[in-house]
Design a protein around this nucleic acid. Structure first.
Length: 114
DNA sequence: AATATGGCACAAA
DNA sequence: CTTTGTGCCATAT
């Protein structure tokens, strides 16, 4: 594999509440900017459901992924987004404002994953 | 082992 | 601005 899923999870974990990030940012932070789609897979089948805030990951253009309002878990997403992020018609309002990409690769080294 | 699918990104038309 | 087409990476069959 060309991307470390464990690393991706750790990185995503340090996204503060009320903030969001993109698949690309995660992939890039993990070391492979082309693995944006793979990140989506990590979210889809994430073994760390409550720990990894997969709902805070969105498209690079600010739109929510196919998980929100498309199939299920629509309520959870909305609730969590309303904690600090406003979503209008599947699009994040002031997306760049709550955008977070200041990932600390060093901090990840200390993090532990169950 | 090979193909298909999926919570994406980017360029071109 | 919206619609294809292509690239990329990890699971599921």
């Amino acid at each position: 594999m060309k991307i470390d899923r464990n690393l991706v999870y750790k990185l995503l974990k340090q996204v503060p509440k009320g903030k969001v990030t993109t698949y690309k940012a995660l992939a890039k932070a993990a070391g492979n900017s082309k693995a944006s789609r793979a990140v989506g897979q990590f979210m889809r089948t994430n073994p760390y459901a409550p720990i990894v805030p997969c709902h805070r990951v969105v498209y690079s253009d600010g739109r929510i992924g196919g998980f929100a309002g498309k199939t299920r878990i629509n309520d959870k997403i909305k609730m969590l987004e309303e904690e600090g992020v406003m979503v209008k018609n599947g699009v994040i309002v002031d997306f760049q404002k709550h955008y977070f990409d200041n990932f600390s690769i060093e901090k990840v080294e200390n993090e532990t994953l169950p």
